[in-house]
Design a protein around this nucleic acid. Structure first.
Lengths: 190, 190
DNA sequence: TCGTGATTTCAGTAATTACTGAAATCACTG
DNA sequence: CAGTGATTTCAGTAATTACTGAAATCACGA
């Protein structure tokens, strides 16, 4: 691996984290490399920078494309493919969220729906369905929220984030005011 | 594997998804089993239900404990350990978020900080640092927001979620109004 | 059409990760 | 402090996943 020290640290870290993030080492390293590169790189440059095989680069780029995490760019008078990451980190975040949802949440949601359609054949199944229904409800609530906020433009999303805490405090204040005029309180949950 | 059909579907699905979630098949299956079980299970019961080795169960339960996803329970006059998942799905969500952050985000944040402390030795490193700084800023903003909302009690968190969209619309409306009277600047931070 | 260079595919191999069974350890009882 | 049952450890093996090199395919210009 032949890279400036700071870049190398970053690339190696992404490689190590790769497995925790559900991608592999090479994919992580390539992404990191492209992310900090001042201009698009072709496959051969990646081979040289990371010291891995050409075919590995090809497969890993393909995976990054499946994740929509890299863009393919063509330079004039050059037949080779050049790759880059989107500049906007917020856009990257959106893509990441969308793809992870697609891979990690949606399948479960659909399995839960399917199971909940069935008639329970025993008390054990009835109880299991009740639990799955709780899980299903939670996931639905989360995805509804997500579908909503993902539409936001970048600056508005940023505002919402920095506001997050303040909205909370507003809710708390409202709550206190409301509770003053209340005679009874219902707090128990099952 | 000897389970009611609906439970089995759920358990098998969690097993398959396990790898996408950064845990392995067995861990996923055990978690699913405990989640839908009406009462705590001991290791031997898990062995029977899933048809896997006793030692595998032991190691997988240990991992689930490292994730804080299962609770150990002792029954009177019984030396065996019984395991269960927390009832409250919101609490489970919190735990999951916390643990994933710890494993998947925090290490990167600290590596980024470390690299950003260094003096760039070339134009390439300077550019790389600028990119890393963007990433660092985004992650900080996200984690700040997260630290804030994770404190919320369950019902308040739920409110915030269902409100999510409305807060957005409110911001949009405010934005329009502000832009109408743009000659003077009305900032309402704080 | 052929030739050239870029890219992809894929079978084989390496590396990693998951799982098992046997042995060790632990926690409690008599 | 021996005996019993529960649990954990760990070395070996199985299963899975990652990577490579060689061959095939592709895209384009002459």
């Amino acid at each position: 691996m032949n890279l400036p020290p700071l870049v190398q640290s970053f690339v190696l870290h992404f490689g190590e984290m790769g497995s925790r993030w559900g991608i592999n080492r090479t994919v992580g390293q390539i992404y990191a490399l492209l992310y900090v590169s001042p201009e698009p790189l072709n496959a051969e440059q990646i081979v040289e920078a990371l010291g891995i095989s050409r075919s590995n680069v090809s497969m890993s780029l393909r995976e990054l494309q499946a994740w929509n995490l890299v863009l393919l760019k063509h330079l004039p008078d050059d037949r080779r493919d050049f790759f880059m990451t989107p500049d906007d980190v917020w856009q990257i975040l959106r893509t990441l969220a969308e793809e992870r949802k697609k891979r990690e949440v949606d399948p479960t949601l659909s399995v839960l729906r399917e199971i909940l359609m069935q008639q329970p054949a025993s008390e054990a199944e009835r109880h299991a369905q009740a639990r799955m229904s709780e899980m299903h409800g939670l996931i639905e609530q989360l995805t509804t929220w997500y579908e909503d906020v993902k539409q936001l433009e970048t600056d508005r999303l940023a505002t919402l984030l920095t506001l997050g805490a303040k909205v909370t405090r507003l809710l708390e204040a409202k709550d206190k005011i409301v509770s003053l005029g209340r005679s009874k309180r219902t707090t128990e949950k099952g």
